[in-house]
Amino acid sequence: MTTAPAHTLEIRNLHVTVETPEGTKEILKGVDLTIRSGETHAIMGPNGSGKSTLAYSIAGHPKYTITQGEVFLDGEDVLEMSIDERAKAGLFLAMQYPVEVPGVSVANFLRTAKTALDGEAPKLRTWVKDVKTSMENLRMDPAFGERGVNEGFSGGEKKRHEILQMELLQPKIAILDETDSGLDVDALRIVSEGVNRAKENTGLGVMLITHYTRILNYIKPDYVHVFVNGRVAEEGGPELAERLEAEGYDRYLASA
C-alpha cells in the first residue's frame, strides 16, 4: 500500500429539501458522516430513503437545496463551491443513472474533463496509453471512445464508463451510487476491480451506496451505515451488512 496523502470528507447535520408540486419536501434530515482516504463506507437503505439525494447534494446538483448543515473536504467548504469546483477539489460521483450527452464523444469528454481538472492538457502519449489501459481493464471496446457519451450504452456499459472516468480523473473521494445495480457477476467483478485499483493506487476514499451485499464480497467495507428516512439510523462494521441482508430494514422502519 502506498502512503497516499490523507483526505477527509466531513458531512455534518446535512438537511436537504426538494421542490415538489405539493411544495417543499425535506429529504435529508440531518446526515452525519466522515469519510477518509482509503476507507470504504457502505451506505445501505430502502428505496426512497434519500441515498441518491445525499450523493447529488454533495456533488452540487441544482435540484437540491441545503437548508442546514455543512460539508467539508480537507477543511474546505464544499457547499460554497460550484459543481465543477467540487470535482476540482477531488470529489467524484458515479451516478445511479448516468446521463447521455449526444454528439460528444467519450474520448473528447474524457480529455476535456482531465484538462479541466489538471488546468492543462494531459501529455498526449501518456494520456492515450492511460485511456487504453483503463478501457482494457474494464473490458470496454476501444470503439467506445468514438461514441457519444453514454449514448445508447447498456446499463452495464454506463456503469463501467463511470468507473473508467473515476480511474482516469483520480478523485480523492468517490461516491458510487448503486454502481453495482443491474450488473451481472462478471461485470460486477470488473467494476469492483476498478474500484480496488483506485483504492490501491491513489488511496481513494469511497462512499458505496448499494442495495446488495454481493458487491461487498469484492469491495470490502470498513464501515456500514444504515440509511433510513433521510438520516443514518445505525452504523457498524461489515457484519452489519450481513444482518441487513438477512433481516431487511423493518426494524429501522418500525422505529422511524
Binding site: 460550484s82 467540487r86 469528454f109 472516468q165
Partner: peptide, 22 residues
C-alpha cells in the same frame, strides 16, 4: 447534461459549448 459534464470538472461555459457542438 450540464450537471453531468460539470461534475467531471468541466466549467459551465465549456459544458455549454460541448452540448451545443454535440
Amino acid at each position: 447534461q450540464m450537471f453531468y459534464l460539470r461534475s467531471r470538472g468541466i466549467s459551465e461555459e465549456q459544458a455549454r459549448k460541448l452540448v451545443v457542438r454535440g
